[in-house]
Simulated scan of single mutants.
Amino acid sequence: MGTPRKVLQVSGLNVKVTTNQGQLQLLHDLHFDLAEGQILGLVGESGSGKSVTCNTLLQLMNQQTTVEGSIQLSGRELNGLEPKEMRRIRGKEIGFIMQNPMNAFTPVYSIGNQFIETIRTHSRLSKKEAYELAAVSLEKVNLPKPHEILKQYSFQLSGGMLQRVMIAMCMCLKPAVVIADEPTTALDMVNQLQVLRQLEQLRSECGTTILLISHDLSVIAEMADEVMVMQHGKIVEQASVFQLFDHPTNAYTKKLLNARLQLPDPSSKRKLIQMG
C-alpha cells in the first residue's frame, strides 16, 4: 500500500487579534497534516487554542483577527479565500460538528427545513430528493422515525439526538475533512458511545479525515491515530496515540496524562479490606 494522500496541510499558521492593548497572538507557528482516512486528536486544557485552531481552519475568525500562514485543502489554499467561495467549501468539503448541539440549529425552523437547505446548498438535488436523503441519513445514525424527526424543532430533541443529526448532515455530504469540536461534551455515556461510533462509521464508509478536538483523553485514546498536544497556542508535542500515551516526552503532556481520573484497582481494595 502507498502512503495515504494528504488532504489538509497546515504550515506556519499564526493568528493574532487586535485589542485595545495592542496585538495578542493566539496561535504560534502551527504545522500539521491530515492524511486521508486519518483521525488526528487535538488535546489541551481550556484556553489552549483548540477552538481557535478549529475556527481558523474554517475561516470563521472575525475582522479583528489576522491569519498568517497556509491552510491547503487538497492543494487549494483556503487562507484569504473570498467568503463566498469559502461558504461553498464549508459544509461540503469540510464538515463541522459543534461542541454544543443545542446552539447548532435555529429554533424557529424545523430540523427538516435546515437539513434540506444544507443539502440543496451543496448539491443539485430537488427538494424531494433532498428530503429522502435526509431521512436515509438519519436512519444511518440510528435515529428512530426519521420522518417525524424532520418535522420537529431543535428544542424537541435531546442533545444526543441533535449531535447525531449534525453527524448525519456531515455523512450525507461526504466531506473530505470533518472537524469535530468536543463532539461528546455534555452527553451521557450511552450517547457518547453512539456519537463516537458514528464518527468511526463516517471514516470507514466515506474515507473521511477527522480532526477530533477533545478534553476527554479517553475519547482520544479510543479514536485517534495520532495526537497533538496544545498549550498557550503552540503544539508542544505530536506523536502516534500509542507513543504519546505510553511514552510522552513533553512535561505538559505528562501533566495532562497524570491529571486523568484514575480508578482504584479492585484487587488492591480487597487486600486492604482483608488486612483491616
Results as ranks from 00 to 15, higher is better:
residue 198 Q to E: 10
residue 158 S to L: 07
residue 236 V to W: 06
residue 4 P to V: 09
residue 133 L to F: 10
residue 34 L to E: 05
residue 60 L to P: 10
residue 2 G to D: 15
residue 125 L to C: 04
residue 30 L to N: 05
residue 188 D to L: 05
residue 248 P to N: 14
residue 35 A to E: 15
residue 226 E to C: 08
residue 63 Q to N: 15
residue 53 T to W: 01
residue 222 E to Q: 07
residue 152 Q to S: 03
residue 183 P to M: 00
residue 89 I to Q: 11
residue 150 L to H: 02
residue 37 G to R: 15
residue 148 E to F: 02
residue 90 R to A: 03
residue 100 N to K: 10
residue 270 R to S: 07
residue 128 K to W: 03
residue 47 G to Q: 03
residue 58 L to N: 03
residue 142 N to E: 06
residue 219 V to Y: 01
residue 236 V to A: 01
residue 213 I to V: 11
residue 90 R to D: 06
residue 26 L to P: 10
residue 57 L to A: 07
residue 2 G to I: 12
residue 245 F to P: 06
residue 270 R to H: 14
residue 40 L to N: 07
residue 21 Q to N: 13
residue 204 S to T: 14
residue 74 S to K: 09
residue 127 K to F: 05
residue 210 I to W: 04
residue 47 G to S: 04
residue 182 E to C: 00
residue 147 H to N: 11
residue 84 K to N: 09
residue 195 V to C: 04
residue 93 E to Y: 00
residue 231 Q to L: 02
residue 264 P to E: 05
residue 192 Q to W: 13
residue 68 E to W: 03
residue 226 E to H: 15
residue 182 E to H: 10
residue 246 D to A: 12
residue 117 E to A: 02
residue 12 G to W: 12
residue 251 A to K: 11
residue 124 R to N: 14
residue 110 S to Y: 10
residue 59 Q to C: 11
residue 118 T to V: 02
residue 174 K to P: 12
residue 243 Q to A: 13
residue 221 A to I: 05
residue 190 V to K: 05
residue 155 F to M: 09
residue 236 V to S: 07
residue 113 N to Q: 14
residue 99 Q to R: 09
residue 80 G to W: 08
residue 22 G to W: 03
residue 81 L to T: 02
residue 149 I to K: 00
residue 57 L to M: 04
residue 161 M to W: 01
residue 226 E to R: 08
